[in-house]
Simulated assay, not measured.
Amino acid sequence: MIHLLIADDDAHIRELLRYSLQQEGYALHEAADGVEASRVLEEHSINLAVIDVMMPNKDGYQLVEEIRSYYDIPVILLTAKDQLADKERGFAVGTDDYLTKPFEPKELLFRIKALLRRYQQVSADKIKLNGTTLDRSSYEVHTQGKLLLLPMKEFELLFTLASYPDRIFSRDELIQLIWGADFDGDERTIDVHIKRLRERFANSADDFTIRTVRGVGYKLEAANR
């Protein structure tokens, strides 16, 4: 069963979402503020979080930053704010999607399903990107009918991006995930490895593309066939 976290200080919103999402078979975990939401994340295996921005004790932006530091789950910010600057801040801290109140529960449901599909992997150790397959159990890549063995860090970088198609990763986030907090180098390391991956997979554009998101980082886009 898929477990969702709903973090919103408005009890009426939580009740509305509880009814509509439980009807779809999701298990719901609720929190009335950011601190309670953090506790839910620690105690339960959450698959996706829907978070209100304006919450007491710990706001939605802080909670999203926390999730990006410790969890690999999709996040939807749910808020009354509709200014471009607010949306920009939401995406900057790591939200995957943004829905402005008032909203239709069905629209939220569509967005939840889309994000869960985007985050879903073929298996824990294997990802298929059209004609390219990444196998983490053997660190092998099969593409264009050929076997390709990548240096370890290049494979880990590609596998991380491919695990969450269309999600934007900052350079710092990728360094933390792949090289670790003790890494002494700088963010240019990511740029160099991305360049090498693009060169290696120059003939695989029909399978996937690694895009640069100016001022932020990178994302992988799987080709639609």
Rank of each mutant, 00 (worst) to 15 (best):
K87D: 13
T95Q: 02
Y61R: 02
K101W: 01
E66S: 11
P105K: 09
N130V: 15
K128C: 15
P102L: 04
K101F: 01
Q62P: 12
D96M: 08
K58V: 15
R118T: 09
Y61E: 08
I127D: 03
A80R: 01
K106S: 13
Q83N: 14
V64F: 09
R111E: 06
I127Q: 07
I73M: 02
L115S: 01
L108D: 09
F91S: 04
D59H: 01
A92W: 08
P56Q: 08
P74S: 01
E66V: 04
S123T: 10
E107W: 11
V75E: 00
R111V: 07
Y70L: 12
A80N: 07
V50I: 15
T79D: 03
A92K: 15
Q121V: 08
P102F: 00
A124T: 08
K58I: 08
D97R: 13
R118I: 05
S123Y: 03
E104R: 15
Q83W: 09
A114P: 05
N57P: 02
D82Q: 12
D72H: 02
L84M: 15
G131K: 15
Q120H: 09
Q62W: 05
V122T: 15
G131V: 04
A124D: 13
M54W: 10
K87M: 13
E88D: 13
V122F: 14
K128I: 12
I112V: 10
M55L: 05
G94D: 07
L78N: 05
T79G: 00
Q120E: 15
M54H: 08
N57S: 08
L63Q: 01
A114D: 04
L78R: 00
G94T: 11
M54V: 10
I51Q: 06
V50F: 12
E66L: 15
F103K: 10
A80V: 04
E104I: 01
L116C: 04
N57V: 14
K106H: 15
